[in-house]
Amino acid sequence: MSTVAPLIEVKNLQKFFGSSSKPVRAVDDVSFTIQPGETLGLVGESGSGKSTIGRALLRLIDSTSGSVTYRGEDLGSASGSRMRTLRSKLQMIFQDPYASLNPKMRVRDILGEALQVHGLAKGKEATAQRIAELLQLVGLPPEHAARYPHEFSGGQRQRIGVARALSVQPEFIVADEPLSALDVSIQSQVVNLLCDLRDQLSLTMLFISHDLDVVEYLCDRVVVLYLGRVMEVAPTETLFSRPLHPYTQALLAASPKPDPLLKTTHIPLKGDIPSPMNPPSGCVFRTRCPYAIEACAQTRPEPRDMGGGRLKACIRDDIDTLTTP
Score class of each variant (00 low, 15 high):
Phe32Met: 08
Val138Thr: 04
Lys22Ile: 15
Val10Ala: 13
Arg59Tyr: 01
Leu179Phe: 14
Pro260Val: 07
Leu134Met: 08
Glu133Trp: 12
Met83Asp: 01
Pro274Asn: 02
Ile293Cys: 05
Leu225Val: 10
Leu244Trp: 07
Ile173Val: 11
Arg159Trp: 12
Ile208Gln: 07
Tyr226Phe: 14
Arg106Phe: 12
Tyr226Val: 08
Leu201His: 02
Gln189Arg: 05
Ala78Phe: 07
Val30Thr: 06
Ala253Leu: 13
Ile8Met: 08
Leu203Ala: 05
Ala121Gly: 01
Phe285Tyr: 12
Ser79Thr: 14
Ser100Lys: 02
Arg25Cys: 06
Ser275Ala: 04
Thr265Arg: 15
Leu58Asn: 00
Arg87Gly: 11
Val284Trp: 13
Gly139Met: 04
Lys124Val: 08
Tyr148Ile: 14
Lys312Ile: 09
Glu73Ser: 12
Ala254Trp: 01
Ser65Val: 06
Leu58Gln: 01
Ile53Met: 09
Val10Arg: 01
Thr64Glu: 00
Leu115Trp: 02
Ala26Gly: 13
Leu137His: 11
Arg82Phe: 05
Ile208Phe: 14
Gly54Phe: 04
Pro103His: 09
Phe152Gln: 05
Leu197Cys: 05
Ser100Met: 08
Arg242Cys: 13
Gly49Asp: 00
Ala5Glu: 13
Gly155Thr: 02
Gly47His: 05
Thr323Lys: 15
Thr265Lys: 15
Ile53Cys: 05
Pro276Val: 04
Asp176Trp: 10
Val168Lys: 08
Val138Gly: 04
Val184Ser: 12
Gln169Ser: 12
Lys15Asn: 11
Pro246Gly: 00
Gln298Asn: 13
Arg229Ile: 09
Gln189His: 03
Val27Gln: 08
Gln91Val: 00
Gly155Ala: 08
Pro235Glu: 10
Asp317Asn: 11
Val168Leu: 11
Lys11Met: 07
Cys195Glu: 15
Ser100Phe: 10
Gly161Trp: 13
Arg159Phe: 07
Val43Asp: 04
Leu251Glu: 00
Val233Ile: 15
Phe240Ala: 08
Thr85Trp: 15
Val30His: 03
Ala126Phe: 12
Leu212Trp: 03
Ala250Glu: 01
Glu73Gln: 14
Val162His: 03
Lys22Trp: 14
Leu197Pro: 02
Asp320Tyr: 00
Ile131Arg: 00
Ser31Asn: 09
Leu239Tyr: 09
Ile160Pro: 13
Asp109Lys: 13
Tyr98Leu: 07
Ala132Asp: 02
Ser185Trp: 06
Glu133Phe: 12
Leu7His: 07
Ala250Leu: 10
Arg82Pro: 04
Leu135Val: 06
Cys195Arg: 15
Gly72Leu: 09
Arg198Gln: 15
Arg159Thr: 07
Met231Tyr: 04
Thr236Gln: 06
Pro178His: 09
Arg159Leu: 05
Gln35Gly: 10
Arg87Asn: 06
Gly307Thr: 00
Phe17Leu: 12
Asp272Met: 11
Ser77Val: 13
Tyr98Ile: 08
Cys289Ile: 09
Asp176Val: 07
Ser20Val: 14
Lys312Arg: 15
Val10Pro: 00
